[in-house]
C-alpha cells in the first residue's frame, strides 16, 4: 500500500469536520475562532497534497495566500474581540446577540 492524495484528503475532511463541530458547539469566542483557523488548515492540507500528487506548485502558492489572508483575519478578528470586550466583558458568543431581529 502506498499513500495517495485520497488518504490526505480523508484526513483533511476529518479535521474540517472537527473544526466545524467546534465552531457550532463551543460558545467561547476564542475557541470558535481557533476552530475556524483549524478548518482553514484542514483545507490547506488537501491543497498541499494535491500539489504534491499533481506535481504543480500552484497548490502551495494557494496555501501561502490562504495563510496571508488567515493572518490578516486573525489580527482583525482579535482586534474586534478586544474592542468588543471593552463594551461587554464576556466571551460567550451567545450573549453577543444585540443584532437579533
Amino acid at each position: 500500500m502506498t499513500l495517495s492524495s485520497l488518504h490526505y484528503f480523508i484526513l483533511s475532511a476529518i479535521l474540517f469536520a472537527i473544526g466545524g463541530i467546534g465552531v457550532l458547539v463551543r460558545r467561547n469566542v476564542f475557541v470558535i475562532f481557533m476552530c475556524v483557523e483549524m478548518m482553514l488548515n484542514a483545507v490547506n492540507l488537501s491543497l498541499i497534497a494535491f500539489a504534491r500528487y499533481l506535481n504543480q506548485a500552484d497548490g502551495q502558492l494557494l496555501v501561502l495566500f490562504v495563510m496571508a489572508i488567515a493572518a490578516a483575519e486573525v489580527v482583525v478578528g482579535l482586534a474586534i474581540l478586544v474592542a468588543l470586550h471593552r463594551k461587554r466583558p464576556t466571551t460567550d458568543a451567545d450573549e453577543m446577540n444585540v443584532l437579533r431581529g
Binding site: 495517495s4 492524495s5 485520497l6 484528503f9 480523508i10 475532511a13 474540517f16 469536520a17 494535491f50 500528487y53
Partner: peptide, 18 residues
C-alpha cells in the same frame, strides 16, 4: 458533511502519481 466528502473522494479518481 465529512462522510459525504469521503464518499465522493473514494468514488472519484484521485491523483496518486508518486
Amino acid at each position: 458533511l465529512a462522510a459525504g466528502l469521503v464518499y465522493v473522494a473514494v468514488g472519484a479518481a484521485m491523483p496518486h502519481g508518486a
